[in-house]
């Protein structure tokens, strides 16, 4: 079991969200979009220029910048 932030999660890997932080408006947006503690998230791919990344959460695809993903604490079980 290891912990980290979502922006560092390798492509193709899944993890469970532990906590979501960040500046108030950003945190609120992340939570509304379904990135909240206890939810599983998978990194699907990154854009050709390396940023943003695409994740699968709650059964849909969400694109977010790495700087934003850095506010999402995760733990990997594998």
């Amino acid at each position: 079991m290891s912990t980290g932030t979502l922006d560092k999660l390798p492509i193709g890997k899944s993890a469970r969200i532990l906590d979501v932080g960040g500046e108030a408006a950003l945190q609120q947006r992340l939570l509304e979009m379904g990135l909240l503690p206890g939810v599983d998230v998978t990194v699907v791919r990154q854009a050709p220029l390396g940023d943003p990344i695409e994740v699968k959460v709650m059964g849909y695809s969400l694109s977010l910048r790495r700087s934003e993903a850095a506010n999402v604490q995760i733990e990997t079980t594998a």
């Binding site: 500046e23 408006a25 950003l26 947006r29 992340l30 979009m33 943003p52 695409e54 849909y60 695809s61 969400l62 694109s63 977010l64 910048r65 700087s67 934003e68």
Partner: peptide, 11 residues
């Protein structure tokens, strides 16, 4: 703007 979030659904 405090770096407006760019959370984008890919429908």
């Amino acid at each position: 703007s405090k770096a407006t979030p760019f959370l984008l659904e890919l429908p």
